[in-house]
């Protein structure tokens, strides 16, 4: 199934990109339009994608998705939440790097990494503190934060 998906997704991507490129205007070889190069790129996806689809049972290299793959989905989702926590959304200004990254460390260590509580607390606190010192105190990067020593 993963193999088939690996062939179908590029085909759909190449097909839709080609349609969009044509809608931009391909032009002529003498006077190429904005869609010509994207159309060439779409072709470069479509042709091998068709070969892949025709031989999807023979071409290997795929791995099956298991329970740990679900963890990766949660990992991606957690980063979305961290971005909102860190930078804010709409009228909400966010909570700055310290709280957001403490949450990131804790979630990734305890939930995704299944580390012990002691390891989670120590690494989360130490990791956030080190990042704060490097980015805020030393590099003085304009990053939203709540604690400052300068």
């Amino acid at each position: 199934m993963t193999r088939l998906l690996g062939a179908v997704v590029p085909l759909l991507l190449g097909g839709s990109a080609l349609l969009y490129a044509i809608s931009l205007g391909v032009g002529t070889p003498q006077d190429p339009g904005p869609g010509m190069w994207p159309a060439v790129c779409s072709g470069l996806i479509l042709v091998p994608a068709m070969v892949l689809l025709a031989r999807w049972r023979q071409i290997d290299g795929t791995e099956t998705f298991g329970r740990t793959s679900l963890d990766i989905a949660f990992g991606g989702l957690s980063l979305g939440v961290i971005i909102v926590l860190f930078a804010g959304v709409g009228a909400w200004p966010g909570v700055g790097m310290e709280v957001a990254f403490l949450a990131l460390f804790a979630f990734w260590l305890k939930v995704l990494g299944r580390e012990a509580w002691l390891t989670t607390v120590v690494v989360s606190l130490a990791g956030t503190a080190i990042l704060h010192v490097i980015f805020i105190e030393l590099l003085r990067a304009p990053i939203p934060h709540v604690i400052a020593f300068w």
Partner: peptide, 20 residues
Amino acid sequence: IRESILAPIVCAITMLGIYT
């Protein structure tokens, strides 16, 4: 060093790094 410890460290550096 385990991946489970390395992962959040690298992830945090990535997110802060790209923001800067």
